[in-house]
């Protein structure tokens, strides 16, 4: 097995181990939540017999290890169980919510990632001159403001004053793509503003770091144009750190958008999870936790794999 294949296999194995560890954390964490699920479902007036019956039915009397194993087996088969509050199949509900979240995150990513890289390149090209400062200031300002504030500002100006896009991002089955895009325009705008700065600044820093290399001097002494040097000689060697931060932000777009979802009343994963945390619906919270962990770990794994593949020494061994 080549070195490259071995490194990739190692990285993927590590991802699986992490996922397993995350499942333990999620299970233990949710078990520690205060309160009794049976009590929560039946209410204060429930008789002790009814409580005992429900506990037995839910398997709450089993030892934790047995419950964990049966839960994990279910998860591995794609069965997250049923929600305690409404008896619906969790996998089906999550599927719908997840696809909404991924749609929102995808729209934001398609705009934010190329834009961030481009702005980063421009900032390097005009380093310490006004375009660089302008880009840095605007992106910094947008990252410094809390998301909900940006959200309400955007609603006030774009939706209420200008009436360009709806303030409520309701999507449902049967909408056309154009309708959906129209609906999510504002949350996408907010998300782009939130993740742009981080990626742009990392791109700038990574490229500037590479710009110190001797081969950049070589390129300069070759009489190449400044942007050619950045694009052709610096950027390919800065891919690894850039991809890393891009993936972190993509993960954030999926995992951390709950505030934006609430502001725009968007039916995504974040809202779904928060709703059920407040209702102490443990199986749903566990399922959401697992999905988030999976997204987070796989995106970071992809970042590492791209970084490994971007290294010419590994891609083209001697």
């Amino acid at each position: 097995m080549g070195l490259l294949a071995r490194l990739l296999a190692q990285r993927i194995a590590l991802g699986l181990v992490l996922l397993f560890a995350a499942s333990i954390l999620i299970f233990v964490g949710t078990s520690l939540m205060p309160g009794d699920v049976a009590q929560e479902i039946l209410g204060q007036s429930a008789t002790p017999e009814a409580l005992a019956n429900l506990r037995a039915e839910l398997g709450l009397n089993e030892p934790p290890l047995t419950r964990y194993i049966s839960w994990l087996t279910g998860v591995l088969h794609g069965d997250f169980g049923t929600a305690l509050t409404n008896n619906m199949d969790i996998a089906t509900s999550i599927g719908k919510r997840l696809s909404n979240t991924l749609f929102l995150a995808g729209c934001a990513a398609i705009i934010a990632v190329p834009l961030a890289v481009l702005l980063g390149l421009i900032a390097v090209r005009f380093r310490d001159r006004w375009p660089d400062r302008l880009i840095s200031t605007i992106t910094l300002a947008s990252i410094s403001l809390p998301e909900f504030l940006i959200g309400y500002l955007v609603i006030y100006f774009v939706a209420v004053k200008l009436r360009w896009f709806p303030s409520m991002a309701m999507v449902y089955d049967g909408m056309t793509l154009a309708q959906k895009l129209n609906a999510v325009a504002l949350p996408v705008l907010v998300l782009v503003l939130v993740v742009l700065a981080h990626m742009m600044r990392m791109t700038r820093a990574a490229i500037l770091n590479v710009m110190q290399s001797a081969y950049i001097e070589t390129a300069e002494l070759k009489g190449l144009k400044r942007f050619t040097i950045i694009w052709r000689h610096a950027f390919p060697n800065a891919v690894a750190p850039v991809v890393n931060v891009v993936m972190l932000n993509l993960a954030y777009l999926v995992v951390g958008v709950v505030v934006v979802e609430v502001v725009f009343v968007y039916p995504g994963m974040g809202q779904y999870m928060v709703d059920h945390v407040s209702k102490r619906d443990v199986p749903v919270v566990q399922a959401c936790g697992m999905v988030f962990a999976f997204v987070y770990i796989s995106l970071n794994m992809i970042a590492d794999i791209v970084a490994i593949l971007a290294n010419p020494r590994l891609r083209h061994p001697k």
């Binding site: 290399s213 081969y215 390129a219």
Partner: peptide, 25 residues
């Protein structure tokens, strides 16, 4: 004009070629 001179009329060979070549190309 300086850019047209560099790499065309006058060129440069560095001490450490190992560092002076772009590893990615």
């Amino acid at each position: 004009a300086l850019r047209k001179l560099r790499g065309a009329e006058v060129t440069y060979v560095a001490q450490s070629a190992a560092a002076a070549f772009n590893p990615a190309r």
